[in-house]
Amino acid sequence: MARVSQEHLEARRRQIIQGAARCFSRDGFHGTSMQDIFRETGLSAGAVYRYFPGKEAIIAALANEVLTAVRGAFDDALAGPRPAWPDEIIAEALRRVDDVLLFPPALVIQVWSETFRDPRLAGILHGALIGMADAWAKVVASYQENGLMSADVPPAHVARVLLACAQGFLVQRALLGPLEVQVMSDGLRGLMSMGLRRPPEEEPGADAS
């Protein structure tokens, strides 16, 4: 019997993931049965179960693919010859997500909502988000070391806000319809262009008296 190539195995796995994603997007996670996925992919139950024991495993694989794509953008930014700007990093991360998410953006929200009932998926997303926050903090620290950002702001705080920008963009796209990545990039670049420090009396925590 001829051996099945790794490329064939990966192509079949992708076929199942993408077919399931179409079902989830169309009918919702809980409204989709494994039989629906068999029909959508044109594969037998045995062929699908060879890769995934159930819907939960498929949606976990979807989450992993997206998070791997985003983390790759951060790793590349940290490995570059200069600190990449926030708008560049987020735009590249979102473009990579678009390359992976060949289905409606609303599925992202469905995946997030599943974390409230699926501890395994919650663990995957929690670990990934902490990892991305740490990666952002390293980028922010490099800005401060290169004199590009005020050093009196905790890198972890900036990291959380930048992470929220990307998450908020995905939510807007899911709820409001098509939204180009360039919108996020332009918006961040506009905020970054302010370049003005607050007067001392307007700094948070300043004595109003």
Rank of each mutant, 00 (worst) to 15 (best):
A2K: 11
A2H: 08
R3G: 12
S5P: 07
S5T: 15
E7I: 10
E7K: 15
H8S: 14
L9I: 09
E10M: 13
A11L: 06
A11K: 08
R14T: 14
Q15S: 03
Q18M: 14
G19F: 13
R26L: 02
R26A: 03
D27C: 09
D27W: 07
G28D: 14
F29N: 03
S33H: 01
S33L: 02
M34P: 01
M34Y: 01
D36L: 13
R39W: 09
E40K: 15
T41D: 10
L43H: 14
G46Q: 04
V48Y: 02
Y49R: 11
R50F: 06
Y51M: 07
Y51G: 08
K55T: 04
K55H: 07
E56H: 04
E56N: 02
A57H: 13
A57T: 08
A60I: 04
A60W: 02
A73R: 15
D75C: 09
D75L: 14
D75Q: 13
D76R: 14
D76M: 10
A77Q: 13
G80M: 02
G80N: 01
G80K: 01
P83V: 04
A84M: 02
P86T: 11
D87N: 12
D87H: 14
I89V: 15
E92Q: 11
L94D: 02
R95M: 07
R96E: 03
L101Q: 08
L102I: 04
L102R: 08
A106N: 08
I109C: 08
Q110T: 11
Q110H: 09
V111Y: 02
S113C: 00
S113K: 06
E114V: 06
T115V: 06
R120D: 12
L121N: 04
A122V: 02
I124V: 11
A128C: 00
M132A: 10
M132P: 03
A133V: 02
D134Q: 12
V139W: 11
A141S: 15
S142F: 05
Q144Y: 03
L148T: 02
A151M: 06
A151W: 05
D152C: 02
V153R: 10
P154W: 00
P155M: 03
P155D: 01
A156E: 12
H157E: 00
V158F: 08
A159T: 07
A159S: 11
R160Q: 13
R160W: 09
V161N: 05
L163F: 11
Q167P: 04
Q167C: 13
Q167W: 13
R173A: 04
A174F: 05
A174R: 05
P178L: 06
P178V: 04
P178Q: 07
L179R: 15
E180D: 14
E180S: 11
Q182V: 11
G187L: 06
L188S: 10
R189P: 13
L191Y: 07
M192Y: 05
G195I: 03
L196N: 04
R198I: 00
P199H: 10
P199E: 12
P200G: 00
E203R: 15
P204Q: 03
G205C: 10
G205Y: 08
D207Y: 07
A208K: 10
S209H: 01
